[in-house]
Design a protein around this nucleic acid. Structure first.
Length: 506
RNA sequence: CGGAGUGUAGCUCAGCCUGGUAGAGCACCGUCUUCGGGAGGCGGGGGCCGGAGGUUCGAAUCCUCUCACUCCGACCA
């Protein structure tokens, strides 16, 4: 006889955080590993979440004047060679296509017909989009050029983890060209703000906006800005980046425009992206020992109605009521859209189905059984308050209040994530000894520790990288909101140039 | 590419030391009792024991080679 588990996910976060993360993905049926190492199969539930995220982002891209386009997966090798820093940054993780035919040899298929010039599978598309832009831009009247693409990219990762770091991943990459620096810089910040908004309003987790120090920049960028989130084990996760590329890529790809005066000028370009990694962030922010917890705005299904069928004849009586309740809930509006509700009529035991939806993170579960028919009631459960006793509510009240409940869950998740982040953000570390102590906790079990972000002044010197490396700590960003006066550098005691967010990171 | 380890049922693994012809739990299928906090009984299907070679009357087990994967390190959305 199987012992009933206390939690739906095993191991728990406290027992083994990395294994817990994998178990949540398996338990929610979101994704699995593929035969190709580093690549993942995104299953319908995981992909539905990605589609919701895509929608939230795409709406905002369109609202800020961008258009979608699609550029090729394969890029000529020489393109990537054009920008020196870019080459250096990506060369080590490139998938290269060298042949265009297979031929049978000794009973096996072997590559045949080498390409004259090898092709790389895009790790990002700056170079090939730059090439296109150089043809598209002629006059100052063509600018700004605002393009986004939804695509897959490939970076040959040696240590993959589902959603967080896979060799192939899905993302969007925005690419824009502008007449002058000011316009391009405004674009860079505008899109970072879009990311902040999506993180907080849709994904329901707070982020710190700031700039990356020079050695953490995107290869080839003049400035890299980011949103940084804190996971439940106190580690940082870069959730989105926006780059001001200056004229570096314009120079490499020859993106020039003619000014009103008739002179030729190089464009200023930007690029910005977020990926399926956000789903990893979503998991590690909100999920608990019973599985995923979805913010209602992002949930593919917001309300599941579970018929409880004890006797054979219950079906005929309960199902119509369940359908009616579903219809009433679906007629309600939350966040500008009809509420996404469904009846789970599958022929599995109700408790099994209930726990499946718990693991999948559906915000609200309504159970309707024979006992509910007379008074037209349902048992109401909130995923974020699983420990509470189920409330028995009349169907009219559910319809009336369901939007409010979802809104409340959305708010609660953000509030809880913000409270956690703030609790683990230390601003009281003043010297190297305290700094070292703050980051010397148990590496394997940081969920249960107090590991988190340290916010402290930094001198900006390259040499501090060595100190940080030894502690496996990185500078996540220099936050935009800087104090008027700075104390000495927490690492060296020298005069500081800015306050930085220090953290261990994914 | 360094260091460690693992390949046996869909999944997690036992069996290997001390060779004797394949096991458990979960999952799956059938059936009866179940179904509102995650059920139980009975029956059933499923494995060239990663691959090749060797030792042996006999190999999942011992030996050699090989392939693959996992974890840890250097690099990263």
């Amino acid at each position: 006889m199987a012992k009933p588990q206390k939690t739906a996910i095993s191991p728990t976060r406290a027992e083994n955080y990395p294994d817990w993360y994998q178990a949540v993905i398996r338990g929610a049926d979101m994704a699995e590993n593929s035969p190709v190492r580093g690549c993942m199969v995104i299953k319908p539930w995981g992909y539905a979440i990605w589609e919701r995220l895509q929608g939230a982002l795409d709406r905002r891209f369109k609202a800020t004047g961008h258009e979608n386009a699609y550029f090729p997966l394969l890029i000529p090798l020489r393109f990537i060679e054009k920008e020196a820093a870019h080459v250096e940054g990506f060369a080590k993780e490139m998938a290269v296509v060298t042949h265009h035919r297979l031929t049978a040899k000794d009973g096996r298929l072997v590559p045949d017909a080498p390409l004259e010039e090898p092709l790389i599978i895009r790790p990002t598309s700056e170079t090939i989009i730059g090439e296109a832009f150089s043809n598209w831009v002629r006059s100052y009247r063509d600018l700004p050029l605002l393009v986004n693409q939804w695509a897959n990219v490939m970076r040959w990762e040696l240590r993959p983890r589902l959603f967080l770091r896979t060799s192939e991943f899905l993302w969007q990459e925005g690419h824009t060209a502008h007449a002058d620096e000011k316009d391009a810089r405004e674009e860079t910040m505008r899109m970072l703000e879009v990311y902040r908004e999506v993180a907080e309003d849709e994904l329901a987790f707070p982020v710190i906006c700031g700039e990356k120090p020079e050695f953490e920049r995107f290869p080839g960028a003049v400035n890299t800005y980011c949103i940084e989130a804190m996971m439940q084990d106190g580690k940082a996760l870069q959730a989105g980046t926006s780059h001001y590329l200056g004229q570096n890529f314009a120079r490499a790809a020859n993106i020039k425009y003619q000014t009103e005066a008739g002179d030729w000028e190089l464009c200023h370009t930007t690029s910005w992206g977020v990926s399926t990694r956000l789903i990893g962030a979503l998991i590690m922010t909100h999920a608990d020992d019973n599985g995923l917890k979805l913010p209602p705005r992002l949930a593919p299904t917001q309300v599941v109605i579970l018929p409880i069928l004890r006797e054979a004849e219950d079906r005929a009586r309960v199902m119509p009521f369940a359908e009616e309740l579903c219809k009433a809930v679906s007629a309600q509006i939350f966040s500008g859209e009809p509420i996404r509700a469904k009846v789970d009529a599958r022929d599995y035991p109700a408790p099994d189905k209930r726990w499946e939806w718990v693991r999948k993170g559906v915000p609200v579960i309504l159970e309707v059984g024979p006992r509910d028919l007379e008074n037209r009631t349902a048992a109401f459960t909130r995923r974020d308050r699983l420990e509470e006793k189920k409330a028995i509510l009349p169907d009219s009240e559910i319809a009336l209040r369901i939007g409010g409940f979802l809104s409340d869950i959305q708010g609660s998740l953000l509030h809880a994530a913000r409270a956690f982040r703030d609790r683990r953000l230390r601003a009281d570390i003043a010297d190297l000894a305290a700094f070292t102590a703050a980051f010397s906790g148990d590496e394997d079990n940081s969920f249960a520790s107090s590991l988190g972000f340290v916010r402290a002044p930094w001198c900006g010197e390259d040499a501090t990288q060595e100190t940080l490396k030894a502690l496996k700590v990185t500078i996540r960003c220099l936050p935009f909101d800087q104090p008027k006066s700075l104390g000495p550098c927490v690492l060296t005691g020298k005069p500081a140039v800015a306050e930085a967010i220090f953290a261990k990171a994914y």
